[in-house]
Design a protein around this nucleic acid. Structure first.
Length: 291
DNA sequence: GGTAGACCTGGACGC
DNA sequence: GCGTCCAGGTCTACC
């Protein structure tokens, strides 16, 4: 079964997939040098499916191995549209970026869309896994989480969907720590999963909400394990580009670019991109740094 | 509001 | 092979 989805032009699947490190995190999988992209997800009726995505004229083709109902097709279309930001409009950003040599390639290659997971829950957990650790450990924790708690893809039991809040809520902290090596992050992950599973906390509606960015940031900061860096990262994933996810790498890059290697802090990183206003997070993200 | 110390893992390094 | 040090954000307690 194939579903064709249109994207707001300009669109480049390769630029979305490689927009950040998420493509290296299971259940995402990239093949054929970025021409083929797939993920495994669990849709609302409980069915676990693989979505194989290819660029097509005007958008993407989504291939699903099994027959799907009209209702399922509609849900899959929504999931893929969200994951790839097919409906996002970057024309204002590109108009500015064309005037900046360090961002010109962003406009030429239709960069700007940032790869998202099917659910915001998944992206919050993955973001927590990126904090205070090395990338290799983040990938390992994510893989452990999926292997231990993700539902299997019936056609290929080696592949799993990202764990649902319900499934994670069933476990306990000690099991989570030992099975996934999450360390001190385990209680944060468990707390969020339990609150979402119980209905105490609703997070998926934040995806399309029209809250002002400061209020949305406040909501994200209420989640244990989400601090300033993680909140800014999540705001980018939510399509809000007026915050910079300042981490140690950002400070190092800004130091090299504008301060001759002298130590800098959050304020200097913000100041470096302040002229980009509502697009400063994206300008930072796509900047071609002096190495 | 700002700061210090603890949290936890795994890689790098020295012995 | 073992022990030690360090990097990486966030939380909590304290001022």
């Amino acid at each position: 079964m194939n579903i064709n989805l249109a994207a707001r032009p300009p669109f480049n699947l390769h630029s979305v997939i490689f927009s950040h490190g998420w493509h290296q995190m299971e259940p995402f999988r990239v093949e054929a040098d970025g021409k083929l992209f797939s993920t495994v997800t669990r849709i609302s009726n409980g069915k676990v499916i693989e979505l194989v995505i290819r660029e097509a004229p005007g958008g993407v083709d989504v291939e699903i191995a099994d027959p799907v109902t009209e209702e399922e097709q509609s849900e899959i279309a929504q999931i893929v549209t969200w994951m790839l930001g097919l409906d996002q409009d970057f024309s204002n950003f590109y108009a500015l970026a064309r005037e900046e040599p360090k961002l010109r390639s962003a406009a030429l290659q239709a960069k700007g869309r940032i790869l998202r997971s099917p659910n915001l829950f998944d992206d919050i957990l993955k973001t927590i896994l990126t904090t205070n650790t090395l990338w290799a450990a983040t990938k390992r924790m994510n893989k452990n989480l999926i292997d231990q708690f993700g539902e299997r893809l019936p056609a290929d039991p080696a592949r799993h969907a990202f764990p649902t809040p319900d499934r994670l809520a069933e476990t306990d902290e000690a099991t989570l720590r030992s099975a996934t090596r999450l360390g001190y992050r385990a209680p944060y992950v468990l707390s969020l999963a339990r609150r979402v599973a119980s209905g105490e906390r609703e997070i998926e509606s934040l995806k399309g909400c029209d809250l002002p960015t400061p209020e949305l940031r406040k909501r994200l900061l209420e989640i244990k394990g989400v601090g300033p860096y993680a909140a800014a990262n999540l705001l980018m994933l939510l399509g809000r580009y007026d915050a910079i996810p300042v981490d140690s790498w950002a400070m190092k890059m800004v130091s090299n670019e504008w301060h001759n290697g002298a130590p800098v802090g959050r304020a200097e990183v913000d100041a470096a991109f302040s002229r980009w206003g509502d697009w400063k997070g994206l300008a930072y993200w796509l900047w071609e740094w002096n190495r």
